[in-house]
Design a protein around this nucleic acid. Structure first.
Lengths: 337, 337
DNA sequence: GTGAAAGCGCTAACAT
DNA sequence: ATGTTAGCGCTTTCAC
């Protein structure tokens, strides 16, 4: 069905230039005769025309494709971010290629290499570590925009949330309702995002004169398994569950709560819970729960905008820090029925 | 850094053929001299070599890229499916391009057209409607494998869950615990997946002599909003919430439960809940809850395998119906502390 | 053992 | 107003 420019040209006894000109809407500009336009139009009507994007890419040395490399899609935050990025990329004329590395650092590097081989025009990546980040910046022949993780390296383009302030607001809000101590279940505190969240939390606690080293529980990964482990250890050491705590991320929260359900058959509704990242299912809990939402829409907007500027040769680095939104779910929203 | 074959050839005073042969590991086969191999090897060691995938695609008329078109990524089922498909595609040497249509049918068609223009070698798609499906099959010049929705059209390649049996098992399990009636909150019953689930449910209810038309509540979409609406209407009509119900999908469940929390401040733990699709956060509920998990891993395995066979010219259609897994969460798993 | 050359479909520069 | 042509980097066929 779909014909190439050349097939149309030879079929009509025209040159490729003429056909291209009318196909790209420049007929008027180059004063192609009405009848020629007619002939081409009706031919295309009948047989169709489909540009070969691959040939175009080879010639122009650009694929109109951007890459996105993230830890995983089954994490609601990254899934939503991918959605928003995909939408904005398409609006900007780019196709997005999404790949996940499942916390496998060497694999993350391979993904970058693979996408670069495929001539993507630019790369968005959430690096697992500073080492990965450096690999990407060194390897990539195209602009790289880093997401979510601030390894405090200068001269890199970066979009992320204002985790320190988000964490401050979360802690402040919880202190209005919950009787201290408020425990902080941190996953991997070497991961910059978690580190920032912990800083914000501690800052507020100190401001209120509430400091105790044992109120921060740390793990190794920001995973469900580690949330499980931290809560289990907590209960072993103290004999009971915390009256109020903050999870450094949603997987940690899932793990922590699964322990409570396993041990008590139910998650005590008295516990005041704080968490990073928002999910509709947080409403399934009967507890007071505060969540800090990251604004994926704003991330996407700024990231794609920055990417276009870098592709157009603008000098980086471009940095954006996006405010977070605090969402509060109170135990008894209403008593009417 | 990355050199092309030709750059290497001219730099070393060799021909592209020679360079290609050693680069593609056929040096021995064509008896390229050891010193020539050495020279090429050390040159590549120093400057690197990066194949231009675009040029290769143009020549071979294949991109080693497959497309995946789904409603949205923020739905955990589709996100997980995308993950599993991406992994298996990569194992098979393909890059996956994921795009979402957000329940916009015309947009879904555009996505297919866009991916076909980009010369993907094949397409996986979850069609929103029969009309969409027909568009894809007509438009696509490459193999299409449909996912999840069985519109009862013969001669199409299709991978989906065994929704009827899954639903039967879910209903049976709930009947062991819950006092009837069990209500069924169906979203869009015209959507084949939901239709099948309803069939399975009714079949078991009939078998137990439990039939009542009003026990099935229907909506228009399989969305959170519709779940909200259905539950709201239910409560208005009957004055209270159901003692046991099944949600036809996770978004419907989210909507339905949000109404309970809004009206009573809490989700009564006495309610027996069934739902399709599994999510770790279902454990946040204090209720007895049964969920029917779809086996995304098996989907991916069969879908990619089928795709490879179709690409290799095998005659379709290829169909796979994947069993579902019932997951049970009981209110009091244990009382020890 | 190694080389030369055509051609995939497009774009852009240059002719008429 | 319309036509010709080189070349993007690769693969493949044929030739020494």
């Amino acid at each position: 069905m779909a014909k190439t420019v050349e097939q149309i040209a030879t079929a009509l006894g025209l040159s490729v230039t003429t056909v291209r000109l009318v196909l790209s809407g420049k007929a008027a500009q180059y004063r192609i005769s009405a009848k020629t336009q007619q002939r081409i139009a009706s031919y295309v009507d009948e047989f169709g025309y489909s540009i070969n994007h691959t040939a175009r890419s080879l010639k122009l040395n650009k694929t109109d494709t951007l890459g996105l490399i993230i830890p995983r899609l089954s994490n609601i935050f990254f899934a939503t971010l991918a959605e928003k990025l995909e939408i904005r990329c398409r609006e900007a004329g780019y196709q997005l290629m999404i790949s996940c590395y499942y916390n496998d650092s060497p694999y993350e590097n391979q993904l970058v290499d693979a996408l670069i081989h495929r001539n993507v025009d630019g790369l968005f990546v959430v690096p697992a570590s500073l080492g990965n980040q450096q690999h990407h910046l060194k390897t990539s022949t195209r602009p790289v925009i880093l997401l979510d993780r601030d390894f405090a390296t200068p001269e890199v383009s970066l979009v992320l949330s204002d985790n320190v302030h988000g964490s401050e607001r979360l802690t402040e809000a919880m202190l209005q309702q919950a009787v201290p101590p408020i425990f902080f279940l941190a996953g991997d505190i070497n991961q910059p995002t978690i580190h920032q969240r912990l800083i914000g939390h501690k800052r507020v606690m100190e401001r209120h004169g509430l400091v105790h080293p044992e109120w921060v529980v740390t793990g190794t990964y920001n995973s469900r398994e580690d949330g499980d482990l931290m809560m289990r250890r907590f209960i072993e050491e103290r004999g009971s569950f915390p009256g109020a705590f903050i999870a450094s991320s949603l997987p940690v929260l899932e793990g922590a709560l699964s322990v409570l359900r396993e041990k008590w058959g139910v998650i005590s509704p008295e516990i005041n819970i704080g968490t990073f990242d928002e999910h509709p299912m947080l409403g399934f809990l009967s507890n007071n729960i505060w969540s800090v939402r990251q604004n994926e829409d704003a991330w996407a907007e700024h990231a794609v905008d920055a990417m276009q500027r870098l592709i157009n040769g603008e000098k980086g680095p471009i940095r954006h820090v996006i405010p977070m939104t605090l969402i509060e779910r109170r135990r008894k929203a209403s008593v009417s029925g």
